[in-house]
Amino acid sequence: MTENAIIELRKVGKWYNSYHALRDVSISIKKGEKVVVCGPSGSGKSTMIRCINRLEAHQTGHIIVDGIELTDDVKAVEKIRRKVGMVFQNFNLFPHLTVLQNLTLAPIWVRGMAKSEIEEIAMMYLKRVRIPDQAHKFPGQLSGGQQQRVAIARALCMRPEIMLFDEPTSALDPEMVKEVLDVMTELAGEGMTMVCVTHEMGFARQVADSIVFMAEGSIIESGSPAEFFENPKSERTRQFLGQILEH
């Protein structure tokens, strides 16, 4: 497959007991590429990106991230998790820590950075997601959109090479979706490798290098946004696009 792929999945299979969640999923993502993954619920798109940092373990096939294969080897998993940042649907901020502490915790404990050094960097990231004034508040005092931007900043503080987004705007009130997407668009402009599960087709059209459509645990088709939206190859994709773009 591709030589310069930073993420490579080869015939990845996963079962939850007898439920077949991923069927021979193969995908290759280059450094700096932005991939949007879409598909109906239960299609395995979240499962797939959660396999990339081993929040879920795959059972067959190979996943190679930046040259390291993901196995049961804890060291390999730890290495990969340092390179891969993740943003969740429900933010998953640590409610007992302030915003700043949320950002600095992992760099201090995992990367061994000095507190003063990382606090400065964290403030820089908070400025970039436009909430430096909330640094000393607790997550529970912030709006959903603000919390999700903190979550993005938290992942960025680990200086990841890859960012995974698992439906980052699905739990947000409509008026807050834009502020999060703006931050993500900005990040994409800076050359970050991004894999994003989302239903925001406008974002996909604007930002994605390629769009991957999944259904029933398989990749049905993938291609550039232009191809995907204007000229979908499979009937299943047309059906999905019909439903999602209708309103």
Binding site: N53, L55, E78, R81, R82, V84, G85, M86, F88, N90, N92, L93, F94, L105, A106, W109, V110, R154, A155, M158
Partner: peptide, 17 residues
């Protein structure tokens, strides 16, 4: 919530951390 464990895992924290 499970999300707290996942967020900690995703950040690369060890079990004891």
């Amino acid at each position: 919530p499970k999300g707290q464990y996942e967020a900690a895992d995703a950040l690369g924290l060890s079990y004891w951390q």
